[in-house]
Structures are given as C-alpha cells and as structure tokens.
Design a protein around this nucleic acid. Structure first.
Length: 292
DNA sequence: TACACCGTGTGCACTATTTG
DNA sequence: CAAATAGTGCACACGGTGTA
C-alpha cells in the first residue's frame, strides 16, 4: 500500500569539512544552553514517543498559535534548527499522505539528542539510536495518534484526562505462576472521565490501551489477552489503584475488530467483559462511553 | 542609552510531491 | 491534469539580552 522510498541521505547541516563524529559532553552542554524550554519539551516529547510526524509535534506543542499554519510554520522551524544541531533526525521520508499530497516527515531523536537528554537526567552522556524498521515506526506512530486523540479531546473539554502514560512508563511487572518475572506491556495507560456541560463525570475509567496494526495473528493477540488476565489475578493493580483497567484494543478496521471479538469470545480462558475493541475512528466514542 | 543581535510569531508566495 | 498537503524562502514585527 505504501511505497516507501529508501532513506533519503540528507547531509543536514554538515559542512564539507566536518567529519562524522559524536558530539562531546562539553559540546552537548553548550548546545543545551542554547535550547529554549520548548526545544527541550520537543526533544522530550520525541524521546517519549520514539517516532513522531511533524503533524504530531505540531498538535502536541504548537497548538496555541494564532492560526494553524503559523503553528505549523514555527514547528517546522524549531525542528529544522534541532536537526541542524543533530539532535533530531528523519529516519525515512514518508511518501504519500492519507489523501492526496505529501506526507509529514517522521522524526526521531538522533544519538546526540539522546545523549543530551541522558546528560540532563544525570545518566551521563550515553545513548545511541539504531536504524529502525518501518513496521516498528508505524506502530509507534499509531500509538502517538491514539495519545493525541486523548489530548485533543481533553483540550476541547470533551473529557478529563487525569493520567496518560506511554510505554515503558505504563508497563507492569509482576511475578508469574512459575516464579518468573513477567512484564505486561500495554502501549498506553489512561484514566479518563467524560465531561458533560463542562463537568467531569462522577466516575473515572481506567484503560490499558493496545494499538494493534493487524501484524500479529489472532492466537498471538489472544495470548496477549491471557497475560492481562494473569496480571489481574495477582491483584496488584487493584491494590494500588482500586480497580483493574479495561483493556481497549484499537484495531485498524472492522474486519479485524470482528475477528478479534470472535477470538476472545471463543477463548475459554478470557473474561469478555474485560475487553473493548474499537477502530481509530470509534476510539474516542468508546472512551467517552466509558466502562458502562 | 542606543544599538545590534537573536529567537520567535506571523503572513505570503512559492516549490515539491502525491492522489484521483 | 487539478486538487491537496507538506515544506521553504523571505520579509516584517516584537521583545529580551548583551555591549559600546
């Protein structure tokens, strides 16, 4: 479906005489002094999501401008500056948008950007990034889409978003039946409350959100559901937060939704009440409807 | 104090790229 | 081809900061 051009070798900001070598810690500290608070927020946002399109960054951080185009303009200028400082980079050029027209660039933290954030966090100037695969990138972009849907719904007062955690912050580790350490890895964790007439609802809903791209077989997905059940049986989440979140699968289309729904119903091991299955288009409606 | 410089915000005209 | 979208170049305005 998506023809993707290879990596566009952009000699961004490198002068003819400069050699490829890492930026030293002094140079990083020097760069850090030149960064605005928003530059840092931008770097942290990209680091948290691993990959974001220009459009994502624009909507997360540059939404409060006079016009949308002006926000976009500022966003691209900030990104260009950070790219010239080798703090962010474009791993691939995405070809073809959703409809006609060019698609947004995809951004990731470059190795110096990674080291700069680690330096700030007191972890020393360490960190290196590898060339990611396209499937991997698309999964993270889909997570960003889902996160952004929640954030924009909160901005427009449709819901109250008291917690939203991206992986690995939302991961839950526990000890399995055999005594081995298990890690449950949702893509997002969120606590929401729909707003009506500007007032948040009386009850909050907690969600483990899984963004599915139909790249895994249904039996594999069912196994993943079993991990949620196993974690629920430990009682850890209920002890810490009072409730066990619903598991919301966001799947690409109705066909996959039906397939997954049937697979969960047929499985003897799963409690169907724990799951909600939706498509990106219906995602917000499901969140607003809540656990009811 | 006056001035230069820089980052940022904004608008406009333009190019590049893709879809139908 | 036209339409749609992302991105660029340029010009101007504004406020903060450093310096003579």
């Amino acid at each position: 479906m998506n023809r993707s051009e290879g990596v566009s070798a952009e000699g961004s900001g490198m002068t003819g005489t400069s050699r490829r070598r890492g930026l030293g810690a002094e140079r990083l500290l020097d760069l850090q002094r030149q960064l605005s608070a928003r530059d840092l927020r931008l770097l942290e946002l990209v680091a948290a999501h691993r990959f974001l399109t220009t459009r994502h960054i624009e909507q997360f951080l540059f939404h409060d401008h006079a016009t949308q185009t002006s926000g976009a303009r500022s966003c691209r200028r900030s990104l260009a500056r950070l790219e010239s400082w080798q703090l962010v980079e474009r791993p691939i050029r995405r070809v073809g948008g959703m409809q006609a027209g060019s698609a947004s660039s995809i951004w990731m933290l470059a190795s110096p950007g990674h080291r700069l954030l680690n330096l700030r966090a007191g972890n020393g100037a360490v960190g290196r990034v590898r060339e990611p695969g396209e499937r991997f990138i698309r999964h993270y972009l889909a997570i960003a889409d889902t996160h952004l849907t929640l954030v924009t719904a909160e901005r427009s007062s449709q819901l109250e978003l008291s917690t939203v955690e991206i992986e690995p912050l939302c991961w839950r580790s526990h000890v399995g039946l055999g005594g081995q350490r298990e890690v449950l890895k949702p893509d997002l964790f969120a606590v929401t409350a729909p707003r009506t007439d500007g007032l948040p609802a009386e009850f909050e809903d907690s969600w483990f959100i899984e963004v599915d791209r139909a790249t895994e077989s249904l039996p594999t997905v069912v196994k993943q559901c079993e991990q949620y059940e196993a974690y629920r049986r430990t009682g850890i989440e209920q002890d810490q937060r009072g409730v066990f979140p619903l598991v919301l699968w966001v799947v690409p289309d109705e066909r996959r939704a039906t397939g997954l729904r049937t697979a969960i119903q047929r499985s003897k091991k799963l409690d169907t009440d724990l799951y909600r299955i939706t498509t990106p288009e219906q995602f917000l409606a499901v969140i607003l409807r809540g656990a009811a």
